[in-house]
Design a protein around this nucleic acid. Sequence first.
DNA 1: CGTGAATTTGAGAGCCATCAATCTAAGTGG
DNA 2: CCACTTAGATTGATGGCTCTCAAATTCACG
Lengths: 256, 256
Amino acid sequence: MNAFDSSPTKLLMCHKSLGRPDDDERREIDALVTRVRELEPDEVLAHQMVETHLSAILTDGLLARYVVGPNGARQMVSLHLPGDFVDLHGMVLKRLDHEIVAMTPARVALIPHAGLEALIAKRPELARKLWFLTLNDAAMHRSWLYRVARTDAYARVANFLCEMNLRCMAIGASDGRVFQLPVRQQEIGEICGVTAIHINRILRLMREEGICTFRKHVVTIHQPGKLCTSGQFNPDYLYYDQALIERFEAVKEVSS
Amino acid sequence: MNAFDSSPTKLLMCHKSLGRPDDDERREIDALVTRVRELEPDEVLAHQMVETHLSAILTDGLLARYVVGPNGARQMVSLHLPGDFVDLHGMVLKRLDHEIVAMTPARVALIPHAGLEALIAKRPELARKLWFLTLNDAAMHRSWLYRVARTDAYARVANFLCEMNLRCMAIGASDGRVFQLPVRQQEIGEICGVTAIHINRILRLMREEGICTFRKHVVTIHQPGKLCTSGQFNPDYLYYDQALIERFEAVKEVSS
DNA sequence: CGTGAATTTGAGAGCCATCAATCTAAGTGG
DNA sequence: CCACTTAGATTGATGGCTCTCAAATTCACG
């Protein structure tokens, strides 16, 4: 199954009733896709401060957005899974304040801003849902900000893994305990604001404690409850429906 | 001069041509204000996860938004100056993922979401500008994230002071060198992810170096160029008009 | 099986948190 | 006018988390 077989918007805003487009709206967005682009790992989709006229929906793979400093240091500000409208905000901001890069082989459906503008004008309720989507991203930024500023390296990694676990659950890519996370330790470091070397030590500690294992790009959470507690994970900021949250909580109950 | 004398939207999106409402639009927003609320320091305007039906434009004073953890630690995620539409995103998100608090005596103009919804339906171009405003906030979150994750305490404080200087310039509250910053060192710490004690040492260092002085809630920047460089300050993320940026840069040229 | 990338481990240094105490400024009441 | 009070600022000493540098090991892949 790939983007050619199915609707690019199939997973858009899954389990977010405040933002999920209905079938009609999704069909209309799908119709706007002018091109599907394949990306290789480390290929840049959008550059800082370069004006664009396209936005992208991720259909396969993993994308990241990052701010880069004068010394070349990267700080990831967002990670995107299939179904995410990656740079919708680019339509409104015109120029982005950050870079967007593929972390794995990826596929995006490209939508011209002009088409989206027209659709939004026609369908105000959809405009509201797309707005919601971009604000959800902002809420995630705030959570990341708290994580980096107020917790230690162990908690940051734990929190990050909890977030990815839940987000993968939302798109059917996790059962609540096991999911693919195709990133290097270097990149986990760039997400959590920690060096890759220290990430390695944290992961070893989690493994030795029997809480969580990260091996060959697969995360296995042995003690979801402990991981959430260590990471101070509160999923409110993801704005998922109650039903998904309950499924997530249920996994914690079943002790491994 | 207070909010009763003048339009609450007078300063809205100053020097941001992508988001600045025109006079007509501003008048229509002003007409939606149903109440003006006075806030005392530390008074909370909006609580986490409580549904609201009002949004607020700040007309006087200083507000902050913060995420609070299970242990009570606060991380500021945003600071608001007069003219900011503080919680516009609350209209779309319904429930906020953070708290909003007054840092000084403050005054906000309250606008019911219902009225704003109606206005947006009537004026799509305004909707776009308001959307821009909320995305500008997100861009600031990303900058704060980089700051906290990738720079040391000295650079964080320097960067923060540069940001506040420019934002104050935008609303006529700074000449590029001197501006009011009515916050305690404790709060600078909660913004920069550093303890108040260490903030104190950083400020002393900046004072001793002759770069910047913070005294009695007044910031005096003696060497704007050095402060910007130390703080890796790049104002792109604020999306100000070129004219303002040029004025800001011009201040650096004039060596003190 | 060779080669480079990624992971893993160790040792030492540094930045910043924590704890504790002093100092200053502003307000209060006698 | 001055003792008293309190919040905030300031300074010192100590410790710990994490970075940096360096080297060894494992892994991916042709």
